[in-house]
Design a protein around this nucleic acid. Structure first.
Length: 106
DNA sequence: ACAATGACCCAGT
DNA sequence: AACTGGGCCATTG
């Protein structure tokens, strides 16, 4: 059982789970906007790193603005994150960059 | 309350 | 996967 989460973190986790279905990815910044914290993308990286709701909250579907996956993924490393995305039919245009067309744009 | 930290972003080079 | 520097924000010690 984890410590009490901040309201901020709860909104982030909820928004991620509710807006990014399997087969889609989203950038930290887009997630920030959807959650109502357009300027807090930096802090989102932190709360996702602590993510206590794995795999309920699909934090592996969150990539940076260029489409690159995190190099410090907390559940097996960058290689594991790439594997999870491949299993969801997400295509990679580079070794660690997902195809931007899978972004949750509208 | 202050300073440091981190799975970020953007513009300039 | 180009690199660097500066800016942003919430969390932690």
């Amino acid at each position: 059982m984890q410590k009490n989460l901040t309201c901020f973190a709860q909104k982030i986790y909820h928004t991620l789970k509710a807006n990014v279905p399997k087969g889609k990815v989203i950038s930290y910044k887009q997630l920030a906007v959807l959650a109502g914290f357009p300027k807090s993308y930096r802090a989102i990286g932190n709360v996702l790193h602590k993510n206590p709701f794995w795999p309920d909250v699909p934090c592996h579907r969150v990539v940076n603005s260029k489409g690159y996956i995190s190099q410090k993924f907390a559940y097996g490393g960058i290689n594991a994150q790439k594997r999870y995305l491949l299993e969801e039919n997400i295509k990679f245009i580079k070794d660690f960059q997902v195809d931007l067309k899978y972004f949750q744009n509208d």
